[in-house]
Design a protein around this nucleic acid. Structure first.
Lengths: 233, 233
DNA sequence: ATTGTCAACTGACAAAAATCATCTTTTAAG
DNA sequence: CTTAAAAGATGATTTTTGTCAGTTGACAAT
């Protein structure tokens, strides 16, 4: 079966934006020969919290949410992962079951890479290991920041910050609306509150002119105000 | 200047419980020749959020808090670090300023290790890098869990969990009281709430028989109850 | 056309948490 | 020992958040 050149890891543009850029020609070839491209429909689950993964997913396009179920039955979205992110890496490194579930928020294209290739490179390519380590350290910093926000900030503050984050991470469409259209329920799961309160808080931001809303579509009208809200009170 | 054998990294027992066990003889020797032992008094600050570190601290004894200031002026304790922990590693890996402050909660003995030795080993010793990576991945998992707890659980639940954590991490004294005696204010900064509410919540746990209290000293009387509270409502 | 489902929204109320004021106890300093 | 300062504790009040019940509107299935 002959593959088109573009579908080979060696030529994949995604590689420019993640740790895989530190891999050697030989490793990429190996990886490419054993990878498996896969389409994931919006709403589909890539993996569930508690599963053991036999590989990682490299996101080529589309956005997914990484979430964790709390004891009280509510979902908390810990992170949104788009193009270039590698899903499942953490649990592969520690050889544990995943602690998060991954669900597609849009149709996605992903590459599945069996774990042995990643693990070999982690053992034998120090540059790669270092790159992964740097990413992990950076994620840890973000996580610490999130902990403080969750513990110390109000729903209003967290929502303002969340909206800015959505803008920064995934940009806007031609009309200036946030590219990623989340349901109110998903937004609530990012902010860490109930859907009802999320809706009320969002409505208030709209009345204050910080955002405008058209159905699922949200536009950040006054980023400075949002920023001030996120910091202050 | 002649050093006692025990004060050399090669013989340090701490090495058994952190990433340094993956270092080679030669690296340890180098490290030992350039380390600097230091005593830190209770209340003293090892480093402040935003500083640039020129090395890491290896904790030989004593416990420190790693905290971050929120925009609203409140401190959030992100982690408690005791014997064997290496402080400042994350910011060293990403070559950034620290995102956390480290303060001694007890008198401490620490070793200061200049960064170049760590960085060299990270570049040249894949086993060491891998060990650090594993630790970092593990911390990230914990952090994700904390995010969910902060976002989804009540102060009561978080306090119950926090007390169990203190017991598990630092043990109890001969009378069964938690070894680490924190001020109510520090406890509040762990749980992520105001001191007043922390006191009230703690008092309630006492009335319910989950804990007993004698000044700063806290005894976990009914761990199962605490566990149930942490999970349920 | 009818039904059913689901997401978005609203009102009313209850519970949780923050805030402010005050008082007591403990601790540290002179 | 005395005194000042800090930590601990409690009451009263306000604000924030959660919960329950119900309405509306869009859309798909029949």
């Amino acid at each position: 079966m002959e593959e088109h050149e573009n579908s080979r890891c060696e030529n994949c543009i995604i590689r420019q934006i993640n740790s895989f850029k530190a891999l050697k020609k030989e490793e990429l070839k190996q990886m490419s020969d054993h990878k498996e491209t896969r389409k994931v429909k919006k709403g589909e689950i890539l993996f569930k919290e508690g599963e053991r993964l036999s590989g990682v997913y490299c996101v080529r396009s589309g956005i997914s949410k990484l979430s964790k179920l709390s004891d009280n039955g509510k979902d908390q979205i810990v992170k949104l992962a788009g193009k270039g992110e590698v899903l499942g890496q953490r649990s592969l490194i520690t050889s544990e079951q995943t602690n998060l579930s991954a669900t597609a928020l849009e149709d996605m294209d992903v590459c599945y890479i069996p774990k042995n290739h990643i693990q070999e490179s982690l053992m034998q390519n120090p540059v790669f290991t270092n790159t992964v380590l740097k990413r992990m350290a950076s994620e840890l910093k973000t996580a610490d920041h999130t902990i403080v926000n969750m513990a110390q900030k109000s729903v209003r503050q967290r929502l303002a910050r969340g909206l800015l984050y959505l803008g920064d991470s995934f940009g806007t469409d031609e009309d200036g609306f946030l590219y990623l259209q989340l349901s109110r329920s998903n937004l609530a799961d990012i902010v860490g509150t109930a859907t009802e309160l999320l809706i009320r808080t969002l409505t208030k931001l709209k009345k204050e002119g910080a955002v405008s809303i058209s159905g699922k579509r949200i536009k950040l009208e006054d980023k400075k105000l949002l920023y001030a809200i996120a910091e202050g009170i």
